[in-house]
Amino acid sequence: MSELLQATAAQGRDGLRAGSAAPRRPWFLRWSWSPLRSRGAPLLVPLALLILWQVAAARGWLAEQILPAPSLVLQSLAGLAASGELWEHARGSLLRVGTGFGIAAVLGVSLGALLGASRRAEAYVLPTFEVYAQTPVIAWIPIGILLFGISGKLAVFLICIAALVPVVMNTFKGARHIPPAYLELARVYGLSRWRLFSRVVAPAALPSIVLGLRMGLSQAWLTLVAAELVGIERGLGVLIVESRNLFQLDIVLGVIVLLGLAGFILDKSFVMLERRLASWRGPAG
């Protein structure tokens, strides 16, 4: 439809009257590029980077050990995938992220809800939590080793404490910032505490909570490589470190790209799930 309008407008601009015999412009000038432009836009930067990478590797701008060619990276990844090794590592990482995030989700929503519901809890606990929120995850490794030893539990612990922060903060904000009009209405209706919670507070806070969970998942995924630095046998982070030690930076680069893509897919899947849930909840919310 838009093409038709654009074509008509163009003809108008050309000062031609509708219906007059105008020479037909070639197909690539008549066809509207806008849908291609909008759908192709996200791909342009990656494509440009890929070309730059290929040129850089071919011209040897950086040592080939530091910047392997994209073709080698693809080849190595394919080899790992074919031998099943890649999935072995990926499975370990997914399991760790899932467990860490799961625990963070439960703990985080609970803590966030508590902080939101009780001003006293907020006064006592929130400042400490805010300090904790600023600490880098890697700094927790020594304490983690003390608590959990050098094991898979350490990795899950590190992932969990990273994911905890956005979950708690967003749940807290969602629970705290209920529009006063809703609370006023609830008071007017004389709703019981349970009803107040289930019919007013929870649904109003839900969008924030879901946002917090989404950011928590993202944080969990980002923490994966740091979490797997110590003492893990199979994982994508381990694959990166071991490949770096064996000076196989093509695998390192390949896994980094894979991690980025996987994180992206996880995030988009979460958004889709969120939309599905929202539509199930209904427009009233």
Partner: peptide, 10 residues
């Protein structure tokens, strides 16, 4: 070794 190799490469 890994650190040394990277340093040489760079």
């Amino acid at each position: 070794g890994p650190g040394i190799n990277e340093a040489f490469a760079n």
